[in-house]
Amino acid sequence: MLSTDRLKGKNIVITGASGGIGAEIARLCATRGANLVLLARSIDKLKSMKQDLTKYGVRVDVHRLDVADTDAVQAVFSKVLADIGHVDVLVNNAGFGVFRHAHEAPVDEIKSMFDVNVIGLMACTGMVLHGMRSRRIGHIINVASQAAKIATPKSSVYAATKHAVLGYSNSLRMELSDLDVYVTTVNPGPIATDFFNIADEQGTYVKNIKRFMLQPEYVAKQVVDRMLTPVREINLPRWMNAGSIIYSLFPRTFERLGKRAFNQK
């Protein structure tokens, strides 16, 4: 059984912390005694969370940050490091997607998805890497997706960004393997959050897969339980991850048999 006091007094930074699994991860970390730095575009939501989470007797700092703005990433993380000294765990949770056929995706939307999901994640990671390397301890948790393993119709751009996150994480993990700095990717299937308010404009995808959707509280617990442990990936749900393994072995057959399900967006 994993120790629940492993996070006590640790400094944990979470991007995209104002809602969904980011907010749930923050709440669970606070209950386990971790100090938090919460980053998101909605500062009002973060301030409200701060009022609620400080009841656990932990330090909670909040900053407005759009991770797509790399200058802002540098400025905010520089202030964070000056305030708290070091980061023990970075959770790169900020991200968004839009379900669209490839020929319908405007270039600005494509760039925006890459700026948030990939460049922003890399920029935030780069701001904590030097400290983790020099201290020879730390954990970088990158929230990817099962879309990083199984691309489906109408998610070409989103899947491409998550494939990039997976590739970056795998390379980074090898770079840090001798330094006791861990890198974990979280690859969940659909989660019942506001993500789909943007991603699924027509509401058809949510309607079709609602009964299979993960709850953010469950996903958050799987992540927090594994903080500061050398876990390579967290794949949820297990049956969907089994599908990704079969897909890697028999891609043509998997795409043919799964065509009907994949087109439910």
Rank of each mutant, 00 (worst) to 15 (best):
T253Y: 10
Q264F: 00
P230C: 04
L249R: 09
R252N: 15
R238Q: 01
R256K: 15
A261I: 09
E255L: 12
L236R: 02
N235K: 10
T253L: 15
N235Y: 03
A261Q: 11
A261W: 07
R256H: 14
S244L: 06
T253A: 14
R260S: 14
V231A: 09
T229H: 07
P251Q: 12
N263G: 01
R256G: 06
R256A: 15
F262D: 06
N263H: 11
F262S: 13
P230L: 04
W239H: 09
R238N: 02
F250W: 12
S244Y: 07
N241P: 00
P251C: 11
Q264A: 08
L228M: 15
L249V: 10
F262H: 07
P237R: 10
F254M: 11
S244T: 15
I246Y: 09
E255A: 15
M240R: 08
I234H: 02
R252D: 15
L236A: 04
E233G: 03
E233S: 08
G258R: 07
E233A: 08
K259S: 13
P251Y: 10
E233V: 04
R232D: 13
R260E: 15
V231M: 10
N263L: 03
Q264T: 10
I246H: 00
A242K: 03
G258K: 06
S248G: 14
L257A: 12
F262M: 13
M240S: 10
G258E: 05
W239D: 01
F262T: 00
I246T: 06
G243N: 08
T229C: 01
Y247L: 01
I234Y: 02
S244N: 04
E233F: 02
P237S: 06
N235I: 03
I245K: 13
P237D: 03
F254C: 05
M240H: 11
I246D: 01
G243W: 12
L228S: 05
T253K: 13
R260K: 14
P251D: 12
I234M: 05
L257S: 08
I245F: 05
N263S: 13
L228A: 02
S248R: 15
N235T: 05
V231Y: 02
R232K: 14
I234D: 03
A261H: 11
R238A: 12
R232T: 12
S244Q: 04
G258M: 07
S244W: 08
Y247D: 11
N235P: 02
R232Y: 11
Q264S: 10
I246N: 01
V231C: 08
P237H: 07
N241T: 03
